[in-house]
């Protein structure tokens, strides 16, 4: 299993898609942080947020990670690497676990620039405006932390929240696994990524007043981020961790169930 993860990382290190994705993520994170700084200084009007909305992690991370993970898994089938992965004595479950781990690591790399910009922004004690528009936990934290005095505990909480966001994004990305294993193509994975980014929020808004449905939707690694901030309770954070882990497990089981008996061309 470790060999598959190492091989995935080796292959991705040679891939332009991944390098561009990380670069784009870094440029976007820095751009949005600069915008927040300029807004807080009053140099730029708040309506500029609309123009930068596509650069916020909420939209960009699922899009980029779906592109990277979709192409990683579809290429596995196209280039028949999967033949060797099976012939190397890896059970099919182990292959799915390895792909889940690789996806998590790659998502971490794409989220990392946002996390770093947030942590460095807070540590710099520069003042940032709150992002208005698309909800972003990273930029929400950055704005919140700028408001009061920075204590050691606040700083640690910020780092913890960034780690939690990596886990939440990894859980979201696990949704792409069954799609990638089933379709063996990148485009459907990207489409699902785009739809799921806003789809769950729309569903939550529609079913907010329906008992059961709203609670179920809230226990997903999508709408749960609405409650995550510097002031979130421990219960909320634990709930977010549990929701992510459970969601990843469900996606793993679905993928495993499909791939266990799948024909490999």
């Amino acid at each position: 299993m470790m060999n598959i993860i190492r091989a995935d990382l080796y292959r991705v290190s040679k891939s332009k898609v991944f390098k561009i994705a990380v670069l784009l993520s870094a440029v976007s994170a820095i751009s949005v942080a600069c915008l927040l700084y300029l807004v807080s200084k009053g140099s730029v009007a708040q309506d500029m947020f609309v123009k930068f909305s596509l650069l916020v992690d909420t939209f960009l991370v699922p899009f980029l990670s779906s592109l990277v993970i979709g192409s990683l898994i579809s290429q596995d089938f196209e280039s028949k690497n999967i033949h060797d992965e099976i012939a190397a004595g890896n059970g099919r479950n182990a292959i799915v676990v390895a792909k889940l781990c690789s996806s998590t690591i790659l998502t971490g790399c794409i989220v990392l620039p946002y996390a770093l910009v947030t942590v460095l922004g807070i540590a710099s004690r520069i003042s940032f405006a709150k992002y208005v528009g698309i909800p972003s936990v990273f930029f929400g934290i950055l704005g919140d932390a700028s408001e009061g005095a920075l204590s050691g505990q606040t700083f640690h909480t910020c780092i913890g929240l960034c780690c939690l966001m990596v886990l939440i994004y990894a859980a979201r990305v696990s949704l792409y696994l069954p799609i990638a294993f089933k379709t063996r193509k990148t485009v459907p994975v990207v489409l699902v990524a785009i739809l799921s980014t806003f789809g769950f929020d729309i569903l939550y808004a529609l079913f907010r007043n329906v008992k059961g449905a709203s609670e179920a939707l809230k226990f997903l690694p999508y709408t749960i981020t609405n409650d995550i901030s510097l002031h979130a309770s421990s219960a909320t954070l634990i709930e977010a961790v549990c929701a992510s882990v459970v969601f990843m497990n469900i996606m793993f089981s679905i993928t495993k169930g499909y791939f266990r008996k799948a024909e490999i061309k």
């Binding site: 060999n3 598959i4 091989a7 080796y10 040679k14 690497n81 060797d84 190397a88």
Partner: peptide, 11 residues
């Protein structure tokens, strides 16, 4: 590089 990739997969 292709050889290396498959060597890594095979450990």
């Amino acid at each position: 590089e292709n050889m290396r990739l498959h060597r890594i997969i095979r450990g």
